[in-house]
């Protein structure tokens, strides 16, 4: 099964809807609740990043019998220093994003914590593609 969503950029009122729909779809299919929550949290953080930093993009979710693969491809400026971006508490989000409850510098660490595999392919000036893999029946939240 494959789901695909257009995620609009800079519209926080819609941000998170794709993740919520994927969560519901996985629930309807009877996927393990722990795996659903880990998928939903990791995807939601990636979706927020896509809206805040990436100027929007395309989100896809592919479910196979043993895992869920989420791919988030944005059209943004890319991540200049990935090691720094992975650090808890580091954020480049502007003040207005913090006022909206995000930009705490927890997004990428939260994704890493919840995913069984996290791949980030970022090219400055071209965009970032984040791939999140959650194994069904995989490990609990780290």
């Amino acid at each position: 099964m494959k789901l695909c969503y257009d995620v609009p950029g800079a519209d926080l009122s819609l941000a998170g809807k794709a993740s919520a729909e994927v969560k519901r779809a996985l629930g309807r299919l009877g996927v393990d609740p722990g795996a659903i929550k880990r998928t939903a949290v990791a995807m939601y953080e990636a979706e927020m990043n896509m809206v805040i930093h990436g100027g929007g993009g395309v989100a896809t979710a592919e479910l196979s019998p043993d895992r869920v693969v989420i791919t988030m491809a944005d059209r943004g400026p890319g991540i200049p220093d990935l090691e720094l971006a992975m650090r808890e508490g580091y954020s480049t989000a502007p003040a207005w994003i913090r006022e909206m409850g995000f930009g705490a510098g927890m997004g990428l660490p939260n994704m890493e914590r919840n995913a069984d595999e996290l791949h980030i392919d970022s090219t400055p000036g071209k965009g970032t593609t984040v791939t999140i893999v959650v194994n069904l029946g995989g490990v609990a939240q780290k």
Binding site: G16, E45, M100, G101
Partner: peptide, 23 residues
């Protein structure tokens, strides 16, 4: 901060927040 909620919450909690937006 909603990322803190996602990093922290593991139990069946009541969430108290001053953040009044759809997030």
């Amino acid at each position: 901060l909603m990322s803190d909620v996602m990093a922290f919450v593991k139990e069946n909690v009541v969430l108290l927040t001053g953040l009044v937006n759809p997030q």
